[in-house]
Design a protein around this nucleic acid. Structure first.
Length: 878
RNA sequence: GGAGAAUUAGCUCAGCCGGUUAGAGCGCUCGCCUCACACGCGAGAGGUCAGCAGUUCGAGUCUGCUAUUCUCCACCA
């Protein structure tokens, strides 16, 4: 017996546990069916589930469960990411509480600490994914720093290095002074701020009373200046080119050079060039062979190349300005809107900084990655995201992959005594190569840098399957079927996976890439911890159940658009689950599952043929929409069928049967009701796995788990017939409408007389009992020779005109108002039809079927109009 | 500066290949505790599909322009 109330907490976790322990999420590797696979976007190992995951993983689980029910060999590969910077930061913060830094511990000890932290607080997110119902094959869970995945990292690194696609270079990079590491372009966020523009002047070398005026937002960098640039087209300043000027305070002489980087329209037209601390200046410096003077320490304090060693840039800026002021060199200071780069993790200002770093030749790798999308080997859904992808790929810069961190994959690079580089998969091999190279045994020094986190996640689509081993899983599931992820990591991850996979595997990592939007708060604002507007999915699940949250995500997901979280909608889907629960209880109470071996094609009752037809349509709609990644349409199709068709109509239609005495009819209706409910459970299962499983298990004994139930597509249904009940539904609705408009008490039993074709009358007489029950009529019969009287309210459904005597209680004003409104609508429509059909071009050019349909509507509306006018005339004097 | 997207009911949004009277949920109004369900049932109100022009027999849907909003990328003189 089902509980009276739907209580997801009673069963959701239990059901999941049973699935997991029974291996229900594992693919049958002996099956010869098609494979379907997804690799999960690996969450940070120490992270917690947020609404973005809830969306992302719900969509994946829907696809996974759907394909599993289609009978495919399905694998959802789970795992987590070591998240280099993020994780190291957390552990360092914890250390700071003990008053320690990582340097106090030393590298080895620190890394041990991180592993310990991972053991302690890792795994939370995987437990939460289980709570959401994600049917991942946890027996295959991977971590980007597992031995196997680390091996893959080293192997591909060596390969890229030997192919000349990884190189070391001394370049300006984005430097995070808090973390003291380089970061990639993508890890820098630009923020609008109002800063100051400082105008001041440098004296000329051979005439200290003359000056060249410059403008800068960062005066403290002047100690790194190695030139001042002026455009040769700058008529006012060009004469200074070739002269030298003097950097005040330090009195260093630098040349005034000609370079088009100096825009005559901007600032003063003359730009100080600081090649070691500005990306543009760096290029200028290279063009003119300028010295590059580094003025910063790794923590962004000024170094001994400046007079203000040890000061922060802010302190140095103030000091510099004070000194310039004393020297009388400042022209003016203005407010200046500008953008300043911040580290997306550390939140501090990023400094362009000159260091030795390692780079991946992304522009070369991008060629194949781009081609694969151009040639349709990988398709974005929605397709418009390929523009974003191409835009970035076409302007791609070398990818800085080295990080001066301790947590991550240490680069497989060893240096010989003279800094010769040996890049091998392990130390032994490197040693062997080195010994060969030097002709004797030498001591090697390993590169201390680790790799950008995204380097290892770039391999995720094949490293998780055991690559470089040619495993059965790799052969079966690579390339994966689809990647589901947010647009915010197209560059970080999708693009990198494409590049790495095309390089190493020569095949795309996934055939499709489904991109979804962001989950925002109720007001459409981005959710963030600092704003305090985040909603914890676990709390939502606690409140409404995982199924309600999942269904909300699916029903809201319309190809790539952001989703505004809505408590009332989630609650609505919990109500939907309750509705289904109660419908199941109705079936249980009426012993629907007691009938065995009923052939669905032998159903004879009109209501049963009707619901079978509707169920078939709904299934096809869900299937079609899922095949095209239209999640909201798929969810809505099953929602509308379950609630609007099955509960609102079919269950009501079965009541006259169940409460009647015809055993054959009861038997048939029981069987069909059970059959339809089963279809609902199956088709709804990918969206709401828990309630569907709970009902599936409790309604009757089953020989198969719902997770592996066959998707009901292939069923042969050949006795579907919608006409009769569709007609009756409209007929009943018309009477209900009239009752409501005439303010008739719900309990009042009425008589209805109908004027219509013999077919309609036959249908009514056949469905007499059902119509009377649902429309609350005493009886419904043919108008025949009965006289139409003034106390009859009149309405119509299709061509049937319905008369209901109101025995003196008719409210003539209400009836007139109702009829007039109907008339108004009819007139409006008739105008439209007349206009269209009066248009010769329409009649000549539109398809015949469209024209015929238009004519039919016109005729019908004209008949209805005559009917309504007649009724109005009849009561005109009251 | 470069690129992309959006504008439909009070609110949040669907609307696929152009073809009925443009849909849903929430909210609102009226009537109902009808033996599955008040987390419910029945019936309603509510829209110049941002504006203008164009293509077409026919435009919410296709094209162009305008207005407004948003997102991404680039940008420290």
């Amino acid at each position: 017996m089902l509980e009276k109330n739907y209580n997801p907490k009673d069963f959701e976790e239990k059901i999941y546990e049973k699935w997991e322990t029974s291996g229900a999420f594992q693919p049958d590797m002996r099956s010869d069916k098609d494979a379907f696979s997804i690799v999960i976007p690996p969450p940070n190992v120490t992270g917690v589930l947020h609404m973005g995951h809830a969306l992302d993983d719900t969509l994946q689980d829907i696809l996974i469960r759907y394909n599993r029910m289609l009978g495919k060999k399905v694998l959802w590969q789970p795992g987590t990411d070591h998240a280099g910077i993020a994780t190291q930061m957390v552990v360092e913060r914890n250390l700071a509480k003990e008053g320690l830094t990582r340097h106090d511990l030393g590298r080895e000890e620190f890394v041990k600490r991180v592993w310990k932290w991972k053991e302690q607080s890792g795994g939370t997110i995987c437990r939460q994914l289980r709570r959401l119902g994600a049917s991942c094959d946890w027996s295959r869970e991977r971590f980007t720093m597992d031995e196997g995945l680390s091996h893959a990292v080293r192997k591909i690194f060596v390969s890229l290095y030997k192919d000349g696609l990884i190189y070391k270079a001394k370049k300006l990079v984005n430097w995070d002074p808090a973390l003291e590491t380089a970061v990639s372009d993508l890890e820098v966020v630009q923020k609008e701020t109002v800063g100051k523009m400082y105008y001041y002047k440098y004296p000329l070398e051979n005439n200290p009373n003359e000056f060249i005026h410059i403008a800068t937002t960062r005066p403290e960098t002047m100690f790194g200046d190695t030139a001042v640039a002026v455009s040769k087209d700058n008529k006012k300043l060009a004469h200074l080119i070739g002269q030298n000027c003097i950097i005040p305070i330090i009195n260093r002489v630098i040349p005034i050079i000609a370079d088009d980087h100096a825009d005559p329209e901007k600032g003063t037209g003359a730009v100080k060039i600081t090649p070691a601390h500005d990306f543009n200046d760096f290029e200028v410096g290279k063009r003119h062979n300028l010295p590059m003077i580094n003025i910063l320490n790794a923590d962004a304090t000024l170094n001994e190349n400046t007079p203000y060693a040890g000061m922060t840039t802010q302190e140095a800026r103030i000091k510099t300005l004070e000194t310039l002021e004393q020297l009388g060199l400042i022209d003016k200071i203005e407010d200046h809107p500008m953008v300043i780069p911040y580290g997306d993790r550390s939140g501090v200002v990023i400094e362009p900084y000159m260091t030795d770093q390692w780079f991946v030749d992304a522009p070369k790798l991008a060629v194949e990655a781009r081609r694969a999308v151009t040639d349709g080997e990988m398709e974005f859904v929605p397709a418009t995201y390929e523009k974003t992808y191409f835009e970035w790929m076409n302007n791609i810069q070398p990818w800085c992959i080295s990080r001066q961190l301790w947590w991550g994959h240490q680069m497989p690079i060893w240096y010989g005594p003279d800094d010769t580089i040996f890049c091998e998969e392990n130390e032994e091999l490197a040693q062997k190569e080195a010994d060969k190279h030097y002709g004797k045994h030498v001591e090697l020094r390993r590169e201390t840098d680790v790799l950008d986190t995204w380097f290892s996640s770039g391999l995720w689509a094949f490293s998780t399957f055991g690559w470089p081993e040619q495993t059965q899983y790799l052969k079966t599931f690579y390339p994966t079927s689809v990647l589901v992820t947010g647009f915010d990591i197209i560059f970080f991850w999708v693009a990198r996976m494409m590049m790495m996979s095309m390089y190493m595997m020569k095949r795309v990592p996934f055939k499709k890439c489904y991109i979804h939007g962001l989950v925002r708060d109720e007001q459409g604002r981005k959710m963030s911890k600092s704003k305090g507007n985040t909603v914890d999915p676990m709390e939502t699940i606690e409140k409404y159940g995982a199924d309600a949250l999942r269904f909300f995500m699916a029903a809201s997901e319309t190809q790539g658009r952001d989703i505004n979280l809505s408590d009332s909608r989630i609650q609505g889907y919990r109500n939907f689950a309750t509705k289904l629960w109660n419908a199941a209880r109705f079936c249980e109470m009426n012993e629907c599952y007691s009938v065995k071996n009923f052939d669905i094609n032998s159903a004879k009752l009109a209501i049963n043929k009707w619901i079978i037809a509707k169920a078939k349509e709904a299934t096809e709609a869900v299937t079609d929409n899922l095949n095209n990644y239209r999640f909201s349409e798929a969810a809505n199709a099953i929602y509308q069928f379950t609630w609007g068709t099955f509960c609102d109509w079919y269950i009501e239609l079965t009541k006259p049967v169940f409460y009647g005495e015809n055993a054959t009819e009861i038997e048939e209706t029981r069987a069909v009701a059970a059959w339809v409910l089963d279809r609902i459970l199956i088709v709804l299962h990918p969206f709401m796995p828990f309630i569907t499983a709970e009902l599936w298990n409790n309604l009757t004994a089953r020989n198969i788990d719902i997770i592996k139930a066959n998707w009901p597509l292939t069923e042969k249904i050949n006795n579907a017939d919608k006409y009769e009940i569709d007609w009756a539904v409209d007929f009943i609705s018309a009477i209900r409408s009239l009752r409501s408009a005439m303010n008739l008490p719900a309990a009042a039993k009425l008589t209805a007389y109908v004027k219509s074709s013999n077919e309609d009358l036959a249908l009514i007489s056949k469905q007499q009992k059902m119509i009377c029950t649902l429309a609350r009529l005493e009886t419904v019969e043919s108008l025949a020779n009965k006289e139409i009287t003034q106390d009859m309210a009149q309405t119509a459904s299709h061509e049937a005109v319905i008369y209901i005597p109101l025995k003196g209680v008719i409210d003539f004003d209400a009836e007139r108002a109702r009829l007039n409104k109907e008339l108004e609508t009819l007139n409006k429509n008739l105008d439209g039809y007349a206009r269209k059909l009066g248009n010769e071009s329409f009649v000549a050019k539109a398809p015949a079927a469209v024209v015929a349909e238009e004519r039919r509507r016109q005729t019908e509306a004209m008949e209805n109009k005559a009917r309504v006018e007649e009724a109005l005339a009849r009561i005109a004097n009251f």
